[in-house]
């Protein structure tokens, strides 16, 4: 968690909504609102947590902040030159070698080609691929691909880092190493927005939290305050649901 007070607004959302169109018959479509009304700011240097149940709109919100989606309504203003969603195996081509895929994937994550080539030894070492780096990735196990993907993704240094669940990948040893690497990246003083279902993770990593429910921002504020409300809400929901199951 950052101790310095964040101040400068780098992303501002006001009453933002996003809908998807779905075909519903001959020359007909219907709108599905993934986000209905979300307003908050992201400030330089802070770590903002996004919480909410499955289907609340957290992933759509991250895509919006990354500039992948544009809002269907509302106002979104960003001064981040490049916001990156931390994604594994972006643009991987099965027939290319691990080394070539690392370069391509890194460039897609906005890392200059020369920078990714300069960091290749580090990528090989972190991923533990050794000589396999020059083999086509379609000969890799899923764990090897994930390790390479994460090693490349950790090279990106955007103005705004977006993380959809801080998950470790690969075997237990690599999982611990990768979780720690992601947490180090979050705590390195950069601006981060992350989603997580883990209460302890949100409490330990974030400065502020926005609680999204049914596409709307239900509450936002200091982590402890919002998490207390959120966990009380979850507890109340579980208590209401329990007699029904019986």
């Amino acid at each position: 968690m950052q101790n310095h007070a964040p101040h400068r607004v780098i992303v501002e959302l006001q009453n933002v909504g996003v809908f998807y169109s779905r075909a519903s018959g001959f020359m007909r479509s219907e709108q599905f609102w993934a986000l209905r009304d979300v307003s908050f700011d992201v400030r330089a240097g802070e770590t903002l947590g996004i919480i909410g149940s499955n289907g609340a709109g957290k992933s759509t919100l991250l895509q919006l902040l990354a500039g992948i989606l544009s809002p269907s309504r509302g106002r979104l203003e960003s001064r981040a030159a490049f916001a990156t969603l931390l994604s594994l195996q972006v643009g991987f081509v099965p027939n290319l070698s691990g080394r070539q895929n690392a370069v391509l994937s890194g460039m897609l994550l906005n890392v200059p080609r020369t920078a990714i080539q300069a960091a290749m030894d580090e990528i090989i070492e972190f991923s533990g691929l050794g000589e396999f780096i020059d083999q086509p990735v379609n000969t890799y196990s899923s764990g090897m691909r994930a390790r390479l993907g994460l090693s490349v993704a950790l090279q990106c240094n955007p103005d705004l880092l977006l993380i959809d669940e801080v998950l470790g990948v690969g075997d237990q040893e690599f999982k611990e190493r990768s979780s720690k690497a992601i947490q180090d990246k979050i705590q390195a003083g950069r601006t981060v927005v992350l989603t997580s279902h883990s209460g302890p993770q949100i409490r330990s990593l974030t400065d502020r939290v926005a609680w999204i429910e049914h596409g709307c921002c239900r509450m936002q504020g200091p982590t402890a305050q919002v998490m207390d409300e959120y966990e009380a809400h979850l507890k109340a929901s579980r208590q209401q649901a329990t007699p029904l199951r019986k």
Partner: peptide, 9 residues
């Protein structure tokens, strides 16, 4: 509210 600019200054 209304529509908007995205992702750029």
């Amino acid at each position: 509210t209304a529509s908007i600019s995205l992702g750029e200054v």
